[in-house]
Amino acid sequence: MFQDMSKDFDIKKIRRSNTISESNCEPHVHPFHEIFYLSSGECTSFIDHNIYKFGKGDLVIVPGGCLHKTVYTGKGIHERIVISFRQEITDWIKEQIGAEYLKNCMVPGVINIPEKRRNYVDSLLDKLMFENDTPDILSTAFIKAGLVELLLFIIRCKEYEDNVIKEIDVDNRKIQEVATYIFEHYTENILLEDVADKFDMNKSFLSKRFKTATGFGFKEYIINLRIQNACRLLLETNKSITDIAFECGFNDSNYFGDSFRKIKGISPRKYRKNETF
């Protein structure tokens, strides 16, 4: 599923229970960046090709264009604060400290905020929500300043703090290896039985475990990666739609078109004509 937003910045608080209907989100991708802070509960997120397990006090970075899905685990209520923003709002950081720092800041992953610094992060997020929910003539400036402060804090965590970058979910290490392999070879003819043999796993077990760990069916994940790459080629090159289909791993241009419409809700041709989709 492709998602977009109508403004340059948004922040909201989301509360969910762990019921089946509320505990999972659909796999999706969006052009804007997303940062979310888990204030209660436990989650597993599949971002690009990495599986992360995290809990209270963890901050998740999802750059624009990353395919991802979150599954809420554990008991009780899960509460997170979600910040969405476009790249343009971070131009000031590039001018002050350089584009490389900002690029490293927005690498997908999970940061465990040191406990002694959580009150600071909570206060900063509260200010952002206040300015977003009760805007006046100065709110846009306050929001930009607050977001810059949060991003600078993340950069400092990555540069100077020990053990703040959460490790990939060790309970799903084998599936992690499978997901990475698919991510690196999705343009090829990848079959479930071949991958199962490669990683010395039963085909049925791999299929079920992959779905549980990532939220994607085996074939569904491959198709989503191919469509994600096709979107990039449609916007960045003049290659024909048929050539793009084959380059991304589809052996039938009609199947490519059907798959693209199912995921993006629009044909490849219309997507190319309108970059806002």
Rank of each mutant, 00 (worst) to 15 (best):
I111C: 00
L206I: 09
F199T: 13
Y101H: 10
A141T: 11
V164T: 05
V110E: 01
L138D: 15
Y186E: 07
N119M: 09
V107R: 01
Y186S: 08
K158A: 02
M201G: 05
I165Q: 00
V164C: 13
N189K: 12
L124H: 06
R118M: 10
I137Q: 12
Y186F: 14
V121H: 03
D122W: 04
F183D: 14
L147F: 04
L102Q: 05
L151P: 01
K198E: 11
L128S: 06
Y101G: 00
E193D: 12
L102M: 08
F153S: 05
K116H: 08
K174C: 00
A196M: 07
E184Y: 04
K103F: 11
M201F: 10
D122N: 15
L150G: 05
K166P: 00
I143K: 15
K174E: 14
L191Y: 12
N119P: 04
H185A: 02
K116W: 04
E149L: 07
E159F: 01
K127W: 12
D126N: 09
G146L: 06
E131F: 11
L125N: 08
Q176E: 13
F130E: 14
D162H: 05
E177T: 04
M106V: 01
R209V: 06
K198Q: 14
F210I: 06
K103D: 12
E193F: 12
G109L: 06
K203E: 13
E184L: 06
P135C: 03
I190M: 06
F142A: 10
L206V: 13
N172T: 07
F205N: 13
Q176P: 04
F142C: 09
C105D: 13
S207T: 07
E188D: 14
R209Y: 11
M201P: 06
I143V: 10
E184P: 00
N163F: 07
E149G: 03
Y120G: 05
D162K: 14
S139K: 10
E159Y: 01
L138R: 11
P135K: 11
D133H: 11
D200H: 12
V121T: 09
T180G: 11
F210W: 03
M201T: 04
V148E: 15
G109S: 02
E159M: 09
K116R: 11
R156V: 01
A179M: 13
P114C: 03
D122S: 04
N189D: 14
L102T: 07
N172W: 14
I137H: 14
A179G: 04
D169P: 00
F205C: 07
N104H: 06
I175W: 02
V178P: 08
L191S: 13
L191E: 15
